[in-house]
C-alpha cells in the first residue's frame, strides 16, 4: 500500500483540496467494496456502505491520526458501517431467501465451480472469521494491521485466522 502517498493526499485534502480525496476513493474503493461485500453479502448494500463510509471518512478526516496508516483507519470505518448495516437489517426483517437475488455478485462473476464452492463455504463462516480471511487473503494485510483495524491483539488475529482456514478446509472437504 502506498502509505506515504496516502498521507500526502490526506494532508492536501485537509488543506481544502478535495480533489486529493478523489484519488484516495479511486485507490481504495475496490478493496473496501470487497470487505463490505464479504460482510453484508449484498452488492447494492455494499456499494451504499462504502459510499457513505467515504463521505464519513471525509467528514472525520481532521480526527485521523497521521501517525497511523490511512487504509487501516478507512478499513475500520468501513467494517463498522457494514456491521451497523448487518445489525439494523437483522433488527429489521432479514432479507428472506426468496427476496435474495439468486445471482449474487459472486455467483455471476465466478463462473468456475471451485470458486463458487469456496464462496459458499466462506458464507458459512462466522462474521469475525470472514473479516480476517478477507483482510488477510484479499487485502493481504499483516497480522498487526488487522489487529489495529479490529482493535484486538495479534494473538487473537492469528487464532481467528487459523480457525477460519481450518473451518473452510473442513467445509470444502464436506462439499
Amino acid at each position: 500500500m502506498a502509505d506515504e502517498n496516502d498521507l500526502e493526499l490526506v494532508l492536501q485534502c485537509l488543506n481544502g483540496d478535495n480533489g486529493a480525496f478523489d484519488h484516495l476513493v479511486m485507490r481504495y474503493q475496490l478493496p473496501m467494496y470487497r470487505t463490505a461485500l464479504g460482510i453484508v453479502k449484498d452488492k447494492y448494500a455494499a456499494k451504499d456502505i462504502i459510499q457513505n463510509g467515504f463521505i464519513k471518512s471525509w467528514e472525520k478526516l481532521h480526527t485521523f491520526n497521521t501517525g497511523k496508516k490511512f487504509y487501516s483507519w478507512l478499513y475500520k470505518i468501513m467494517i463498522n458501517e457494514s456491521l451497523n448495516y448487518l445489525r439494523n437489517t437483522r433488527k429489521g426483517e432479514m432479507l428472506s431467501p426468496s427476496l435474495q437475488d439468486d445471482h449474487t455478485p459472486f455467483q455471476i462473476m465466478v463462473a468456475k465451480e471451485e470458486s463458487r464452492q469456496l464462496y459458499d463455504s466462506m458464507a458459512l463462516l462466522s462474521k469475525d472469521q470472514r473479516i480476517v480471511i478477507q483482510l488477510r487473503h484479499f487485502e493481504e494485510l499483516s497480522y498487526q494491521e488487522i489487529a489495529d483495524i479490529l482493535e484486538i491483539d495479534e494473538k487473537k488475529v492469528k487464532s481467528r485466522l487459523f480457525s477460519a482456514r481450518m473451518k473452510l478446509r473442513e467445509l470444502l472437504s464436506e462439499a
Binding site: 478523489d22 476513493v25 467494496y33 447494492y44 459510499q51 471525509w58 459472486f106 465466478v110 487473503h137
Partner: peptide, 29 residues
C-alpha cells in the same frame, strides 16, 4: 485454499463507480 482465495478476489468487480456520488456529497458539504 489460499490460492483459490486469491483467484476469488480477482473475480470481484465494483458493480458501479462510487466516486461520482462521493464527490457530489463532498461538494455539497
Amino acid at each position: 485454499i489460499s490460492d483459490d482465495l486469491k483467484q476469488l478476489k480477482s473475480e470481484i468487480k465494483l458493480p458501479a463507480p462510487v466516486l461520482g456520488n462521493v464527490k457530489e456529497a463532498i461538494e455539497n458539504r
